[in-house]
Structure formats: C-alpha cells, structure tokens
Amino acid sequence: MNWKSWLLAFLIFAGSCVVADLVATYGVIFRMPMYDTNRILHLYQTNLDEIPMFGTSRIRWNYDPVVLGPNLYNYGMDGSSFEVTDVLLQIELAKPKTTPIIIEPEFEDTHKLGDPAKFIPLLSDARFRPPMQKFHALGWWQFIPGLRYFGQYDVYVREFLNNRRMTNWKAAQGYSYDTTPPPFNRAAFDKLVDI
C-alpha cells in the first residue's frame, strides 16, 4: 500500500475540515446577529443591568424588549423546552447580578430542543451537553473541528441565505421582526369576518 498518498489524502481531509469549520463558524454563523447561537453568546457577556427574558417562541416573537425598556434582552428561542431554558438560566444565575429575570418556561411539551444546529458551536460549555444528549444525538464528532458540523452545513448556509434576504427586518436587543406590512386581502377578510 502506498502510505504517502494515504497520508496526503488524510491531510487534505483534515485540512478541508478545519477550513470548512472556520468558514462556517466565522464566515456564516457569527455573521448572523439574530441567529440563536449569537443571541445565546450574548448571554455570556456580563451586562450588569440587563434584564433577560427566557422562554420559547412565545417570548421570541411576541415580546419586544425595546418597548419594555432599554435594558431588556430577548433570549426566547423556537422549540426550546424547559431543559434548554434552564441551561440559559444557570448561565445567568452564575453572574453577580441582582436584576430581575423574566422566565416563560415550557412545562408541557418538554421533548424538544429546537434546531440542534444552534447548539453545536456552544458545546464547549458542558451545561449544553445534557439537553443535546437528551433530545438529539451527542456524538464524539461534535467535539472535533470540521466534523462537528456534520449534517448541519447546509442548515447554516440556508439560514445565512435567508438572513441575507431579510432586508426589511429590524433587530434590536435580541428581538427582530418584519417591518413590511402584512398583505391585506379584502376578499379573504370579508369572508372570515361577517359584518
């Protein structure tokens, strides 16, 4: 067997994986400010007067922190179960702070994680591993650069392309919304509402 070409193939493989990891992490994931990963990373900063709001999509899409006050931050995430909210809460409680915390936990529908893709860059924090293990699959490869995004590369690219398209969206304090007025269909309205 030709060991040199096997070694070369392995080096190309490892190199491509590392490059792809860097591109995905810094070129794609970190460049989407409203992507859940980056909103969670915001929690790692110690903003002493920040009032965090934790919860599910109900928080995420319905509570505008700008309206409620300048120090609020929306950490709500689609499909996050009580276990996920709990991890965020633990990170917050470890801080030397006395500000209030707004929590909207999901108790009923607990077998959820949301999209696992958002947690992969965060797995260096061991607190994220138990929910990931419980609701998704936590494999050894998720701790190896390049391999850790296995099965998720296209998920990130799609998210990134969607983000590029959202030119009418406004984002602040962890909350984002579409500023284009929803299309109003008179006929459909009249059909539904009987005046």
């Binding site: 193939a9 493989f13 792809a20 390049g146 296995f150 590369y153």
Partner: peptide, 18 residues
C-alpha cells in the same frame, strides 16, 4: 483508492445527514 476514499469522506462530511 486514497483519492476515492478522500472524495467520499469529504462528501459525507459536507453533504451527509445523521
């Protein structure tokens, strides 16, 4: 063979699904 296995490996990592 090394090139072939390399090609498969890269495609699996970047296009594969669990």
């Amino acid at each position: 063979t090394p090139q072939f296995v390399l090609l498969c490996g890269l495609l699996i990592v970047f296009l594969g699904r669990l």
